[in-house]
Design a protein around this nucleic acid. Structure first.
Lengths: 214, 214
DNA sequence: TAGTGTGAAATCTTTCACAGCA
DNA sequence: TGCTGTGAAAGATTTCACACTA
């Protein structure tokens, strides 16, 4: 039996995907000088039901105070802990086109536990240029670089045609978490993949545009 | 009673969010010269269960052929129809920083029913410059421009601090579908909002990194 | 009094399993 | 035989409703 099988509580997927939102809301509240927050207040900020907030937070083994609410600082800490944000994550980006470059320069990495440690592209013309403080290296160096550094997360921002091959390389060098911006669905052995695609999002929005306007 | 209340079938949200993926897979298959596809084949491409594929497609009132499968071209057409991709959508982007510029230059709008018709920024230094074939205009022109053109979808790629205000402006000019790349949760009256945020995605991935490595 | 924590109900989604058809 | 379409079961998620307590 693996350690992963005996996690004290398994947090439901739906809850995990909301934890970063609670965290962000709590940070905003703290910045405004708020010390205590109720499930109702958090719910309003996230546009969800207050009971859902309480149930979500109950998975953290949190202890809010009845009649009062949650301590913002304490709750932030618990969420960070639950999300594993007590450690740092190395991130590499492959494919430094418009989108890859934008991601590389992105500064909203929320309290920066995620560190971009490498940028890769297959285009020799781009290799050697500087983006967001890092020099683009040829993707052929990926495996060796990853072997030397700790890299947990790989971001794919290449054209769809080569995304699958990049994913395979990621798996070969032991990267098990992939964020895929390419317009393709990756076939992977083990890795967790999250997919972000603009045209998919637009098409989904488009459906609801249509149904509302009748 | 509104027309929207008598839609023949309400497609479940979960299904709607997969339709663009089926569509993309079908287009890839068609490009490979495949004419007929089984639920099993589609399932493998999307990494889902074949029964789910069949159930999803059954909401389209589709008719696959027993013992054979689905006709790719026909099925594509039905999905397009269901998603409302038989018409064109006008899209504006507000906030032309690195990300906004990348989105503006993005060419993967899948058979291009989505047309970017305006780019806006509050920075006078950017106004007048050309990105992806369009000239950036000052955001103060947004309302007037939208009144003259048909704009269904608004994309927010501004800093978080001003995203809420942009959303309000979108609603005021009648844009009811918003794709929000800013790191904030928008409070809107009526609009449909979809949120895409890199740091949220990384944090979610981070959780699973942790639980797998024990 | 105001607000948490949580069983239980309601709802949504996925999966199974199989009748039925080309 | 191979694959669709779909009831029904299983599972996940959301919401309700209320006991409980600082």
């Amino acid at each position: 039996m693996y350690i992963s099988d005996v996690k004290p509580v398994t947090i439901p997927k739906a809850t995990v995907s909301r934890l970063p939102l609670y965290l962000h809301a709590l940070e905003a509240l703290a910045a405004e000088g708020t010390c205590t927050v109720s499930s109702k207040m958090l719910a309003q900020r996230l546009n969800v039901n207050a009971a859902k907030v309480r149930k979500d937070l109950s998975f953290l083994g949190t202890h809010g105070v009845r009649g009062v609410g949650y301590d913002c600082a304490e709750l932030s800490k618990q969420i960070r802990h639950a999300l594993g944000l007590t450690r740092d994550f190395g991130v590499v980006i492959v494919g430094i086109g418009n989108l890859g470059a934008a991601l590389a320069s992105y500064d909203g990495f929320g309290a920066a536990r995620f560190h971009i440690v490498g940028l890769y592209d297959a285009d020799e013309a781009k290799v050697g240029t500087n983006v967001g403080g890092l020099t683009i290296r040829h993707v052929r160096h990926l495996a060796a670089d990853v072997a030397e550094n700790t890299v947990e997360i790989g971001i794919i921002a290449t054209p769809a045609a080569v995304a699958q091959d990049v994913a395979r390389q990621f798996e070969e060098c032991g990267i098990r978490s992939i964020l895929n911006f390419a317009q393709t669905i990756l076939q992977v052995e083990q890795a967790d993949v999250r997919r972000v695609d603009l045209s998919t999002e637009l098409q989904i929005l488009g459906y609801y545009v249509r149904s509302e306007s009748g």
